[in-house]
Design a binder for these strands. Structure first.
Lengths: 116, 116
DNA sequence: CTGGATCCGGATTGATACTG
DNA sequence: CAGTATCAATCCGGATCCAG
């Protein structure tokens, strides 16, 4: 019985991971969200600089997907030339914990790599 | 000055994210790690079941990469027929925090989706 | 039978050029 | 500046094949 309950917990957790990975799927999504996590408002070209290695095509595509999933809000400013601002929605901000733990791990991980 | 410091912090954090994403890159890696996080020892075919949607080809490939990055340990058991066990290394276990926060978020996220 | 490699077609991505 | 368009490279899924 207890075994069964434990197994069910595992399954539920793995399903939760699956759900989370669904919206976060895509090579760059987490990095994009991190950029917006640490900058509040960010323009297209700024994110392009933040996320090292990404191409404008992929940035455009993944931002669009994040917008569809209501994690990111896109605002066109009426300037000349046009500027566009991206920011996390409140819902998107709920990912902050994940980003923080990734940042912490990455910082440690870097030490390990460099230590070699 | 203070502005400069803040900017540097952001850059460092984004670099940390970049480093973390490097080892976690690949469509399935996080789900695989989650499976091993919640099961301690797990066989190839069991992980195949845990990670819904993955093909044996990709599982094989990504496990190999995780092994190369020292996150996962592979053990061949001398049984008939051969069975292979995978488990997280202590280093791999340091990802637990990340997996947990993803699980928590995924659980909430699921509620939001179903609520619609 | 289990763990995994191989081959192929279709989908995703990268590099670069181009547009409003 | 903020994206599209295009073509090449690469990655991925499915089926199949193979060794122990």
């Amino acid at each position: 019985m207890a075994d069964n309950k434990l197994q069910n917990d595992c399954k539920k957790k793995l399903m939760a991971i699956h759900d989370a990975m669904y919206v976060l799927s895509g090579k760059w999504k987490i990095s994009i969200i991190a950029s917006l996590c640490y900058h509040d408002k960010r323009r297209f070209s700024e994110i392009l600089n933040d996320v090292s290695g990404i191409s404008n095509k992929m940035l455009s595509k993944e931002l669009k997907e994040l917008e569809m999933n209501k994690l990111v809000k896109r605002t066109v400013l009426d300037t000349q030339p046009v500027t566009v601002e991206y920011q996390l929605t409140p819902y998107g901000k709920s990912l902050q914990t994940i980003i923080d733990s990734l940042t912490d791990w990455g910082t440690e991980h870097r030490k390990v790599i460099i230590g070699k």
